[in-house]
Design a protein around this nucleic acid. Structure first.
Length: 170
DNA sequence: GCCAACGTTGGC
DNA sequence: GCCAACGTTGGC
């Protein structure tokens, strides 16, 4: 059965206004392949429980923003794909679910502490760019991911750094 | 408000 | 498995 063609782009935002981000995920928990295999190649980005990361999602992430998808706690850690922000920040229901690993008993439904966004796969990189390569590129100086001791699982990336990483994958 | 203890992240 | 670097918690 045929379906009418629907444009895949979620926004008409021009590239000039777009912001860029990086999110980390442990591939054993949720990989970029998992994202590609998800319905409409989209997932909810639930489970962020760090205030700085939450603030970036809540205040910064806009539909159509581009997101580098990074695999952490694996060998080798690497940027593996590009996603985009679909739905902007809304309450993360897992904070109210006592059976969830992400349950937060202190959060009140009338004033939720934690939010999530929807992320949609744009494309896998032609090849992963691992962290040793990233560290070896002087053009990436200042990238939050590479800062000593950095653990932020959601953070902004400059357009220059984003483009440089995409170029490295070619 | 301070800060020590603790738990977690995540590269190595 | 190690441990540095964080963020959070809770006693005071």
């Amino acid at each position: 059965m045929f379906r009418a063609f629907r444009p895949r782009r979620v926004t008409t935002m021009t590239p000039a206004r777009r912001q860029y981000w990086l999110v980390k995920s442990e591939p054993t928990t949720f990989s970029f392949d998992d994202l590609l295999a998800s319905p409409d190649r989209t997932t909810t980005w639930e489970g962020v429980r760090n205030f700085q990361a939450r603030n970036f999602m809540r205040d910064g992430m806009k539909a159509g923003d581009r997101v580098l998808f990074y695999h952490s706690s694996c060998e080798p850690p690497a940027v593996v794909g590009i996603a985009e922000v679909g739905r902007e920040a809304y309450p993360d229901p897992t904070q109210f679910d006592p059976s969830s690993d992400y349950h937060d008993p202190k959060s009140r439904p009338r004033d939720p502490t934690w939010v999530m966004v929807d992320l949609r796969a744009v494309a896998a990189l032609p090849r992963p760019v691992d962290i040793t390569e990233l560290r070896a590129n002087p053009g990436l100086e200042g990238l939050e991911l590479l800062r000593r001791g950095s653990r932020l699982s959601v953070h902004p990336v400059s357009r220059e750094h984003f483009d440089a990483i995409v170029r490295m994958a070619k």
